[in-house]
């Protein structure tokens, strides 16, 4: 996985820098086409969602619950609050655990030991495991320890497991970017290894950790599959009010609305899609701002 922000690729200008044969021009054309294709699909998605959903982007979307009786007034209140609660809880569980694991692996673990190598290999693989597998894992664990499957806590556990490898990997990248000289200087002045990590390395890596964590959380926010597998509720007409409350989240609500026959539900689904895209864009923008403003160049 590329470290965030540290790699600046120089654009390949195949056609300008001498290499003007037919092959490279065709290749450049194909590249342009793929870029155009992906940008266009995104644009089409954005425009159609906006056209369908703009009439429903009003206060009802935020204040009202989903409604079969009055689809024209259905809102995503339960899903918005559910998403917020689940994501906060996911962050509370995943970030400290992920950062701690990364600190151990990066600063204390002896990478020559077989068990550390095993952890290492597993981490890279886990980051690529499909989201639904984490849903199955959590469902199994929840069943065996008697945790109800459709409550906020269980959903947050599934999402925390899902983003844990990503947080560990990005945190390690961020810590690796802190120069050895800082650690050596700190140790030379008499600080213990723990003090070095706590007062020097970790603070210096915070921007990278924050960026990675926010991107990981934005992935969790858009995820429906593991929560559906846990038996995600599609109709909730109350605010989630604790760890053991039933809940629904935005992606599940959108998925469910889009399947309904009534046009009004498809419109409100589009409105909720716009809301979710805006939230994701906001989170990614915050991550970029943190990276650009606070990341130190050594």
């Amino acid at each position: 996985m590329a470290s965030i922000g540290s790699i600046a690729t120089a654009p390949l200008r195949a056609s300008r820098e001498g290499d003007k044969n037919a092959k490279s021009i065709v290749f450049l054309g194909v590249l342009w086409f793929t870029v155009l294709f992906s940008v266009l699909s995104l644009a089409v998605l954005l425009v159609t969602s906006f056209l369908d959903g703009s009439t429903r982007l009003d206060a009802n979307l935020f204040t009202r619950y989903s409604s079969i009786v009055l689809p024209e007034l259905a809102g995503a209140r339960a899903a918005i609050l559910g998403s917020a609660l689940v994501i906060v809880l996911t962050a509370v569980m995943a970030i400290p655990l992920g950062v701690a694991a990364a600190v151990y692996l990066e600063e204390f673990a002896d990478s020559r030991r077989w068990y550390n190598k095993l952890i290492e290999v597993n981490l890279t693989n886990l980051a690529a495991v499909p989201a639904i597998v984490y849903g199955m894992l959590t469902a199994g664990v929840a069943l065996s320890i008697g945790l109800p499957r459709r409550v906020v806590l269980t959903g947050a556990i599934a999402l925390a497991l899902l983003i844990l490898p990503v947080i560990i990997i990005t945190t390690r990248e961020a810590m690796r970017a802190v120069p050895q000289e800082i650690r050596q200087g700190s140790l030379a002045l008499g600080a213990t290894p723990l003090q070095t990590v706590w007062r020097q390395t970790l603070p210096a890596a915070v921007p990278g950790i924050a960026t990675g964590s926010i991107l990981a959380l934005s992935r969790a926010l858009g995820e429906a599959a593991p929560l559906l597998l846990l038996g995600g509720l599609v109709f909730v007409s109350y605010d989630p009010n604790g760890l053991f409350s039933g809940y629904t989240v935005l992606p599940i609500q959108i998925y469910n609305w889009a399947k309904e026959p009534q046009l009004a539900f498809q419109q409100v689904a589009s409105a909720a899609i716009i809301l979710m895209l805006a939230l994701l864009l906001l989170m990614n923008a915050v991550a970029i701002v943190i990276r650009n403003r606070y990341q130190k160049r050594w």
Binding site: I68, V69, F235, S237
Partner: peptide, 23 residues
């Protein structure tokens, strides 16, 4: 699902303390 959801929605107008959830 939508039928039971509608039942839950109408029921809540009479019994606001009951939370009906449908998966």
């Amino acid at each position: 699902g939508p039928l039971t959801s509608a039942a839950g929605e109408l029921f809540k107008e009479e019994q606001s303390g009951v939370n009906v959830s449908v998966a």
